[in-house]
């Protein structure tokens, strides 16, 4: 506890980096997964390769990807951009299937009536399909958020500082306090992101509340 209080500033900076490195990829990943998921839903033949392909990305060990990316992107090994890109890739891996399945869960008669009312394809997607896919997409996003918070900490090994740095620091000095603080901070951050997405999902789906209320 005394260690935590005396290193409050350091922990704060690590936390800020951790939020940045795990949350920004969540947004970027979602932005890229939406069109990919839509394509997988729209063109049936694309579904298996897209889902399998993006799914395989998730099996690449994070350490390997952190080290490989600078070679592919021509960036410095310490550049946080590598971590951002890597986490975005993982988010995409988790969300493409979620988006495709979320869109597939929209009832056929709703699609049919939307088309019959005179919605064009894109506005139907925007106004009808995506709002109805929100519960499924939000559930996938929660998994991705927690997964990101956990994987980002590995980046401490390649020297990109965030809460994971507390683990490497603690290990190097055989000192337990920073490790405990790091774990607690990670869990709290994951919980906070999870609740945030849950709340946003609820706010976007008012029709799922008050079922059959009088």
């Amino acid at each position: 506890m005394t260690w935590f209080l005396s290193h409050l500033d350091d922990v704060g900076v690590f936390l800020a980096w951790h939020v940045y490195l795990s949350a920004v990829p969540l947004v970027l990943g979602l932005a890229i997964a939406l069109p990919l998921g839509y394509l997988a839903r729209r063109y049936r033949w694309l579904y298996p390769p897209l889902i399998l392909g993006t799914g395989l990305l998730y099996t690449i060990p994070s350490l390997a990807i952190f080290i490989l990316l600078p070679l592919l992107l021509g960036t410095q090994i310490l550049d946080p951009i590598n971590v951002l890109v890597a986490m975005t890739v993982y988010t995409i891996a988790l969300l493409v299937r979620t988006v495709a399945d979320g869109l597939a869960a929209v009832p056929d008669e709703v699609l049919l009536s939307a088309t019959a009312m005179g919605y064009k394809r894109f506005s139907r997607l925007l106004r009808v399909e995506l709002p109805l896919a929100v519960p499924v997409i939000a559930a996938g996003l929660r998994v991705a958020a927690v997964s990101n918070v956990s994987i980002v900490s590995v980046a401490a090994i390649i020297g990109v500082s965030q809460l994971g740095s507390l683990f490497t620091d603690g290990f190097a000095r055989a000192f337990l306090a920073p490790i405990v603080v790091g774990i607690v901070a990670c869990v709290l951050l994951a919980l906070a992101l999870d609740l945030l997405i849950l709340a946003a999902g609820r706010a976007l789906t008012p029709w799922l509340r008050n079922r059959r209320a009088s």
Binding site: P107, E109, V110, L112, S113, A114, A116, M117, V128, P131, L132, T205, W207
Partner: peptide
């Protein structure tokens, strides 16, 4: 053109 289907097909949201 008005269009009505079985189960109404209302927008749940």
């Amino acid at each position: 053109i008005g269009y009505v289907i079985q189960h109404a097909g209302l927008f749940p949201h």
